[in-house]
């Protein structure tokens, strides 16, 4: 068995493993149960896609896609940061994972919470720090 055969075989194994990883991550994104879980799933999906592009680069020699992988990493990072800000702005968590009912009035909630955050967030944090 030549080195090239070993490489071909390991590339196929790696593609199968990565596809399984994609599948499990998507199951987590669909199941939730909370918004941070889904965002984490999307972050993981970007990471797995970068790995997939690297394996495809070894398999076919189309290394042009490595540029796309770098851009994908940048977009994934910015998306996660933006979603983290969104979680902060959206305000108090609703336990139990029944978020679907609340998606409809998300705009009203954001307006409400922005007002609350502006009034309360910083003074409350300071008081807690002094108290502890």
């Amino acid at each position: 068995m030549s080195a090239q055969d070993v490489l071909d075989m390991s590339i196929n194994i790696a593609l199968v493993l990565l596809s399984l990883a994609f599948l499990l991550t998507i199951i987590r994104i669909v199941k939730g149960p909370t918004l941070p879980d889904r965002i984490l799933g999307l972050d993981m999906l970007v990471g797995a896609a970068i790995g997939y592009i690297a394996v495809i680069g070894v398999k076919t020699g189309y290394t042009l896609y490595v540029d796309i992988a770098i851009a994908l990493g940048l977009v994934g990072f910015l998306a996660t940061v933006a979603f983290a800000r969104f979680i902060l702005v959206r305000g108090q968590a609703d336990e139990g994972g029944m978020e679907d009912g609340h998606e409809l009035d998300a705009d009203a909630m954001i307006d409400h919470k922005i007002g609350e955050l502006g009034a309360n967030a910083t003074p409350a944090d300071n008081q807690e720090k002094q108290g502890s």
């Binding site: 493993l17 990883a21 499990l24 993981m44 990471g47 797995a48 394996v55």
Partner: peptide
Amino acid sequence: AFFALVAS
């Protein structure tokens, strides 16, 4: 690929 699978 194994580590990516372990992560998921």
